[in-house]
């Protein structure tokens, strides 16, 4: 007669406590994952609530379409700041995209393995440099470059186009902000594009090369069409990073609340507005609501682009 066989149930104390620990951890961990999901809503709602007082006095449309910013007189027109944000970001992204895409293509399609392994730490380093250091670099290198070289030249030969006209004395301008931004978001866009390109099976490239296409033709007609939506999503994601960049841009962009007409005009993006004036915001009525409202507007714009592009990218990269 064999000895009786124990049931497959947690009867020993050790098994019972292991099972308890597991189900406790399951619940505790689940609670932690509520944090990120909740945080998005909490941030949005908290900022909106601080924005409310000013919305009781002025309509949202009045605020976002107003061009005068005189907090002392109770005039809060956000348009110059929204325009400043848009100009710097758009120009920055426009400057960043072509070299970034080409770099990513070079790395994924042409470069030798050694170049590739070198590039990863290089991009990591570029991404690791703090915003304020980019700002210092911008002030020391880019502002003079824009003020003393690009401005006179472009103004002289292309000055008839309003976009390039200038009567500014210095290089603190939209263009300087855009150049600094372009360098800052470059590692980001390159990394995403590279990652997206890596999802294309090697066989597809070989199929094209195998019928005698050059590498550029392969890229142009086989590789790029496959990944274009994902690359655009990556660019939008890069743009939404640029939208919120604060210190580096603030240090080189001039910070004059005006509607810019030329890339050599000074601009005043939303993040710079918030950072420059947070010190006084409790001293003038509704000023705090205006500044935190600026943060809310910025957040909503970024959430919109961000969620859209993230969903597109998650589909491709998984």
């Amino acid at each position: 007669m064999e000895k009786p066989i124990p049931l497959f149930s947690p009867i020993t104390p050790a098994a019972v406590s292991r099972r308890r620990a597991d189900s406790f951890a399951n619940r505790a961990f689940f609670m932690i994952t509520l944090i990120p999901v909740a945080l998005i809503f909490i941030i949005t709602i908290a900022l909106f609530l601080r924005f409310l007082p000013i919305l009781r006095e002025h309509s949202l449309w009045e605020l976002v379409s107003g061009v005068t910013w005189k907090p002392n007189k109770g005039e809060f027109g956000f348009l110059p700041f929204i325009a400043g944000t848009f100009w710097v970001t758009a120009l920055g992204v426009a400057l960043a995209v072509p070299p970034c895409i080409l770099t990513a293509l070079y790395l994924s399609e042409y470069a030798r393995a050694t170049t590739r392994t070198l590039m990863k730490p290089l991009l990591d380093l570029l991404a690791a440099i703090p915003s304020v250091v980019y700002g210092v670099w911008g002030m020391l290198a880019i502002v003079p470059l824009v003020g003393d070289v690009l401005r006179p030249i472009l103004n002289r030969y292309l000055g008839f186009i309003p976009l390039f006209a200038s009567n500014q004395p210095t290089g603190f301008s939209i263009l300087a902000g855009a150049i600094v931004l372009a360098v800052m978001i470059a590692p980001f866009i390159i990394a995403i594009t590279y990652e997206v390109l890596a999802t294309i099976p090697q066989g597809l490239r070989q199929a094209s090369l195998g019928i005698g296409a050059t590498q550029w033709q392969t890229i142009r007609y086989v590789v790029l069409p496959q990944v274009l939506p994902a690359i655009i999503a990556g660019i939008v994601l890069g743009a939404s990073r640029a939208l919120g960049e604060t210190l580096a841009v603030l240090m080189v962009v001039g910070n004059i609340p005006q509607m810019p007409n030329s890339i050599f005009d000074a601009g005043y993006p939303l993040p710079a507005l918030i950072a420059n004036n947070y010190g006084e915001m409790m001293s003038i009525p509704l000023y705090d609501a205006a500044l935190l409202g600026a943060a809310f507007i910025l957040l909503v714009i970024i959430l919109f682009f961000n969620i859209l592009s993230t969903i597109v990218l998650q589909r491709v990269l998984k």
């Binding site: 066989i5 049931l7 497959f8 149930s9 947690p10 098994a15 292991r18 099972r19």
Partner: peptide
């Protein structure tokens, strides 16, 4: 059934099954 006991019964500890 392992030794006559159904390992898919709800009160069965799956870690115990995999141990044995």
């Amino acid at each position: 059934l392992v030794n006559g006991q159904d390992i898919y019964q709800p009160d069965v500890d799956v870690t115990e099954v995999r141990k044995r």
